[in-house]
Structure formats: C-alpha cells, structure tokens
Design a binder for these strands. Sequence first.
DNA 1: TTTCGCATGTAAACAGTTACATGATTAC
DNA 2: GTAATCATGTAACTGTTTACATGCGAAA
Lengths: 175, 175
Amino acid sequence: MDTKTLCLGVISLGAASGYEIKKAFEEDGLNHIYHTSYGSIYPALTALTKEGLAVCSAMAQEKRPDKKVYTITEAGRSALLTALSAPPAEDKFRSDFLFTMFFAHLLPPNHVAKLLDERIAWYEGNLAKMESNRDCNAFVHGMGLAVYRSAADYLKAHRQEFLDQLSGANQLVAE
Amino acid sequence: MDTKTLCLGVISLGAASGYEIKKAFEEDGLNHIYHTSYGSIYPALTALTKEGLAVCSAMAQEKRPDKKVYTITEAGRSALLTALSAPPAEDKFRSDFLFTMFFAHLLPPNHVAKLLDERIAWYEGNLAKMESNRDCNAFVHGMGLAVYRSAADYLKAHRQEFLDQLSGANQLVAE
DNA sequence: TTTCGCATGTAAACAGTTACATGATTAC
DNA sequence: GTAATCATGTAACTGTTTACATGCGAAA
C-alpha cells in the first residue's frame, strides 16, 4: 500500500489537508495500522492531483499559511476501490523491543526490567488513548484494542518470571 | 535496528551463513519480529567482516557452491551489546489487511468475508507452526503466540457481526 | 519433469525518513 | 519564555525490495 493509496483512503472519508492526513495516522484509529511522514504525504498529494484522483483547493487563512484542502474525485474513488480490491500484502512488523528481548540474556537484568516497564506503560497509555476516542471503524478499532490488551497482559503476567530466569542464568554463569 | 545488527544477533547464537540467517528470520522465532531479504543480508555480512565484527570461513561443499560461514568476533559481541543497550526504536507495523478492513464499507461483503477467512486461516496456520517448533527464547515466543492468538480469536468472534453490519449498511444504501 | 531446497551475490528501482527551511499563534 | 500546534514543502540520505545471474540435487 503506497502513500498515495493511504491518502486517497483518508480523503475518501472527507476532504483534508496534508497536515490533517498526518494527524489521522497518529490519532484517528489509523495509528496502529500505518505510519507516514510529511515527506511522503505532501509529494503523494501532489501526484494524486496531477493524476486527477484528487482536487486541491487553497483555503486562505488569516495569520497562517494557506491551507490546501484535497477532495477526492470520482476517478480517485474508483482508483481507491481498485487498490483495496487487490490481495493485501503481508503485514510488515518490525520490533526493536522484541529483538532486544530476544537477546535479553546478554543485558543486565535491571536494564531489561526497565525496558519491560516502559513497554507496559506504553501499551497502557495507548490503550487509554484508544479507549477514550472511539473510532469510525469499530471492528478495526476493536482489533487494535484486543491485540494491545493481550500484549500488555502478557508482559505483565510474565515479566517477573522472565527476569527471575535471566538472573538465574546469570548466577549460574557467575558461579 | 539495521540489518548489520540483526545479523550480528543471529550469529551471536552460533556461526551461520547468509542463507541460514535468512531462515532464522522465517522460522526460528524471529519471523514475527523482523523481516529481511538476501539483498540486505549479504551486503551486511560483507560489511561486518570488513569492520572486524565477524569472520568468514568458506566451507567447501561437494556439489554445491561454497558455504560462507560467519562467526562473531569479540569486537562483534561488544558492538551487539552496544546496539542492544540503546533505547529501542518504536515498533513499526503496517497492515494492508487492516487498512482494507478500515474501508470495508466500500467493498462487496463477500469479498470482505473472503479476506477475513483467509486472515483467520493465516493466523491459525502460523500459530500451529509456532506451537510445533518451540523457540530458544520462551518469553518472546510466548508473546508472539499470545498476540496472534488474540488476533485470531478477535477475528473469529467478530467476523459475523462485522459482515452483518456491512450488509445492513449496504441494504440501507440500496433502499 | 517440474518444483523445492540449497547457496551466493549485485544492481537498479523504489520507498521512506530525516533534516532543513519558514513562521505565526496559543497555551503553560 | 518555551513548548506545542498549526501549516507546507524539498532534498538528501538511507534503506529495502525485486529482478537478475547461476546452478546442482532431491523429491514429488
């Protein structure tokens, strides 16, 4: 899924500026699905406009730079439908945290404990945020909640056991 | 976490060839953490060797191309430790599937049903594979299992409800 | 006989992030 | 006064994927 399709999806829900699209990927229930940056959004919007999949109207604002609002066209809706109809690519997940945990036996247990606690706090914080602002797509929103909940619960349930095991192994080495 | 560090991590568990490192990211419990391709692994191994973080010994094989086995050096272990000690970058997740589900209201319900069923089958298949080959890191392995399990369970539990809701909305449009 | 697994590597194409460039307003 | 929010955009850098290049052995 390229950034053009991502932008097309967001503006299919309502006209938006590049800035607002970025926000959608941070707050509006798209945050746990995809990430993007201005550096990919703005060029994508320009390309979309050139291809006739969106139209841009500059909104003059007092005391602010003009806000460029992009509206999806019929051709854009049809392009979005085509993109969504293609078999979805495999999920791409990459976690420095889990990779680090995989090699936790190389690290001081108190450092590992800190990482675990930070991660648990991160999940809890995210869950609170997600629970507060209910999303336009309850199914996807619910899936995000379920997965984050299970991750947080798992970490909390196995934290101590894991740390004990690491210390145990370290003691054996020290002996 | 760059590919060099990923390779360093894998060979810290035992000398390996590029081919075997790739396999580790497909099968050996690293599959749900990170992905890589030969195109990034082989250059990374060359760089690691140049930097003295790994040494390469060519193993002549009968009727096969030479197998280049990479062994981590002391400098390599120390570099790995440094990399693992840095604060981990945020997880990067991108899901075409969830993005598509977010816009499921634009698609024919039977197509959505197919995607859901395929995804459930994918999770179940992966879970079976992961349950069969127990991993060297039980904590990380267990977390993968827990998260996949909750995702599969969520999809199974909400599949029908979601589809009913989509058909309902479509009927309203048709009326 | 065709596909899968073993085995390494390069180069071009593609995509994405980060840093840079600019600057006012508002809330703490 | 300092940080955050609003607001757009480019360019360089970094990284990844894909296609190409090669080729045998074993199993289905």
